[in-house]
């Protein structure tokens, strides 16, 4: 590009040289992306490297500590029963939530693909709650999962003869807290459903007609046409849901707050007997409540590596799918 501009025969004056330096795609491109680049260096790369470094120190929230090698990681995996609970909770949470969210979203997307009266209304009802995710919904669901007769969920279960459950503080069945947290996902799967719906509508109708003429039944249509053609969307949704689940924070934190007597202070952010401990609430607790920055950094590094592994998977598959609701290529 630059040599094109400098092709003139006349000797170059310094102004021309300057213009050559700034008047090309490289300079302009970099000028436009500078804000992001600066932000990335200051608020992305640098703190990330610092977190990596800190994970090998005994830093606190207020001062940089000594280099202690792999001690934090050793402690995480061998001497920290709480982290074992975090891992168990996360495994349970992710393993149940993913099939639940993906399965239900796909199911409702398939139903909503058909044209029928009221389709729009149902779509809205399924989609809007997903915009309401956050602290307010968490406060609401914490009340719904109240123990005894008070909680609405228990009242509903009572209709089918199930005795009231002590969802958030049952010392014998600590997993109930995770079950409550998993169940709330049902209300917020609208975004995933709509992406599935867009993916379904991108499948050409002719394929179905041709297959039907060849005598394929509806199960065959689903397994041989819908699923393969939807697989890019399926992969994308699954990974986004996994990443979202790994980063659960508001809901478990607010559920845990409810366990304290009153909401002003006290109570562990990890819930009753750590039953609500998740990756991010544990990082929060270690770093900001216990001031163990170095140790929290080690947890953060693990979460990061886990997420990165999934992110790379996205990038590898990204070339095959586009998820703008149409089939436009991502790269050009």
């Amino acid at each position: 590009m630059a040599d094109m501009t400098m092709r003139s025969a006349a000797p170059l004056t310094w102004t021309t040289r300057l213009r050559c330096l700034f008047n090309n795609d490289t300079a302009r491109g970099y000028a436009f992306i500078t804000p992001w680049l600066v932000g990335f260096l200051l608020f992305g790369l640098t703190p990330m490297l610092l977190t990596f470094y800190n994970s090998f120190t005994d830093s606190t929230l207020f001062k940089t500590g000594e280099w202690i090698g792999f001690k934090n990681y050793e402690r995480l995996f061998t001497k920290d029963p709480t982290f074992q609970i975090v891992l168990n909770n996360m495994a349970l949470y992710v393993a149940v939530s993913i099939p639940l969210v993906i399965g239900l979203s796909l199911f409702f997307a398939l139903l909503l693909r058909e044209q029928f009266v009221g389709n729009r209304v149902f779509r809205t009802i399924i989609y809007v709650p997903s915009l309401l995710v956050g602290a307010a919904s968490a406060v609401l669901f914490r009340q719904l999962f109240s123990g005894g007769q008070l909680g609405l969920i228990n009242q509903l279960l009572g209709l089918v003869g199930i005795a009231p459950l002590n969802w958030l503080n049952d010392s014998d069945r600590l997993w109930l807290a995770m079950a409550a947290l998993i169940a709330t996902n049902v209300w917020f799967l609208g975004g995933t459903t709509i992406i599935f719906l867009a993916g379904l509508h991108a499948i050409p109708q002719d394929y179905y007609e041709a297959a039907r003429i060849d005598g394929a039944g509806s199960w065959k249509l689903f397994t041989r046409i819908t699923l393969p053609l939807l697989s890019p969307t399926l992969v994308f949704n699954t990974i986004m849901v996994i990443i979202g689940q790994l980063q659960a924070f508001d809901m478990p934190l607010i559920f845990a707050r409810g366990m304290a007597n009153g909401f002003s202070s006290g109570g562990s952010p990890l819930g009753y007997k750590n039953s609500l401990a998740m990756f991010l609430t544990y990082i929060y607790e270690r770093a900001f409540v216990k001031s163990e920055m170095g140790y929290a950094s080690a947890v953060a590094v693990l979460v990061f590596l886990l997420t990165l592994a999934l992110a790379l998977f996205v990038l590898f598959t990204a070339r095959r799918f586009t998820y703008f609701g149409d089939q436009e290529r991502a790269t050009r």
């Binding site: 992305g44 977190t51 990082i283 770093a287 999934l310």
Partner: peptide, 24 residues
Amino acid sequence: ILFVVLLATMMLPTQVTAISLYRT
């Protein structure tokens, strides 16, 4: 390459950078 870096940062949990940024 920069665009791939940008895509990669999308997957970076806020909390990973936040605990260092807090001190800064």
